[in-house]
Design a protein around this nucleic acid. Structure first.
Lengths: 221, 221
DNA sequence: TGGTGTGAATCCTTTCACAGCC
DNA sequence: GGCTGTGAAAGGATTCACACCA
């Protein structure tokens, strides 16, 4: 078990999400064809992806929804709760703090840090913003391994280094910077501008004139 | 010109970002090797990616930074400003509203909508939240083609359909839902939970016991 | 009949290696 | 010598097609 395509791991998350939808609709079993169709994949893709991790299906029947959900959570490591810290309590950080979907998915926001003295002690929900100095102690005491970075791109690399030093091993990074880290540290980055650029690229292919108000009348009422 | 690998288009965004960094550092030219190294790609990868779109380099010299930035922006369609609307003024939506990086990257937030009557008229920066009824008119008048969705997963599909009906052709979706749309509509999705799951997966591979506070003493001071 | 699991075939992406240019 | 652009080779991922099972 060690050459699973990256895209396959990524799709596992989507299978899980879709299975939970089927579960709420009280489906007992589901075929690779149904699951694939709901997500826009082929049935072969679904089966192949799943068999990278084991044999979960029942020939002639399909996959039992509850069972497969349990297996996928175990694979993704979300069958338990991961404590997570957030660094950076700016706009985005504060939005993340109040994001409710966290816990349901197996992640628990355990502490929030910011370098700005003016923000320290401010309270959001049941957490209050801590100064960076407290970070190593808290990470150590709560044995936290996962962090979310939502700071300026200039500060991001320094924060990452500091986090690693404190014992963090996986990071979800929201700042638009190319972060460097040792290979045993996992960094997953989300860059809003990159996402918008991808959209813009695809939209420009079809009709480059769509970008700015041109003529082309359409339902102005 | 029409079979460019998806991953290559994605990397173009990163080349652009890195080039802008080199530009700020006043580099005149840059080789595929330098650019690749800064981002963790091979030099061959960089050259191949770029040649999908044309010939931008100068043998023996490299790429002229200013020139290449201009070309890549044109390719991505961000050499002009795209007006964008936001639907959903919850926590995440409000964070996006105040995100300053937008305009610099070629995107301008032009209007914000929410279905919740209590939020209508509330003001953030220079925009105020509009009711959904106004959406088709505003999209039509300003000829807007791009939207960001930050609503609940339950509402997302309905909002998407409504947006398409109003003339939107590209959507950046932040709600955790598998949205269906015609093939000429571009939907780019970002799901926070999926990102965290990918991290959790990779971290679980190495050492499954890292998830919850176990023994393993580390720098608790 | 309806379904999984899987080797083989296909398709797509990345890397190699080198001709040609400054 | 240093660098790009690119066909050819290698490496990965997806799809096909079928054996096998309920």
């Amino acid at each position: 078990m060690q050459d699973i395509p990256g895209p396959a791991v990524y799709r596992i998350s989507f299978y899980l999400r879709q299975l939970e939808t089927f579960q709420r609709a009280e489906h007992e079993t589901i075929s690779s064809k149904q699951l694939g169709k709901a997500l826009g994949y082929t049935d072969a893709q679904v089966r192949k992806d799943l068999t990278y991790f084991g044999q979960f299906g029942h020939p002639g029947v399909g996959y039992r929804v509850d069972e497969l959900i349990g297996r996928l959570k175990k694979i993704l490591g979300t069958d338990r709760v991961w404590p997570v810290i957030l660094v950076g309590a700016g706009n985005l950080g504060r939005a993340l703090m109040s994001y409710k979907g966290f816990l349901r998915k197996g992640f628990q926001l355990s502490a929030v840090f910011d370098a700005d003295a003016a923000k320290i002690g401010r309270r959001f929900g049941d957490l209050e913003i801590e100064p960076m100095e407290n970070l190593p102690r808290i990470v150590g005491q709560l044995q936290i391994r996962m962090a979310i970075i939502a700071v300026t791109p200039e500060a991001a690399q320094g924060v990452l280094d500091f986090l690693i030093e404190a014992g963090i091993r996986g990071v979800l990074n929201f700042s638009p910077a190319n972060l460097k880290s040792p290979s045993d540290i996992f960094v997953q980055s989300v860059d809003l501008a990159v996402q918008l650029e991808q959209l813009s690229f695809r939209m420009s292919l079809g009709d480059p004139s769509d970008a700015l108000p041109q003529d082309e009348s359409r339902s102005v009422r």
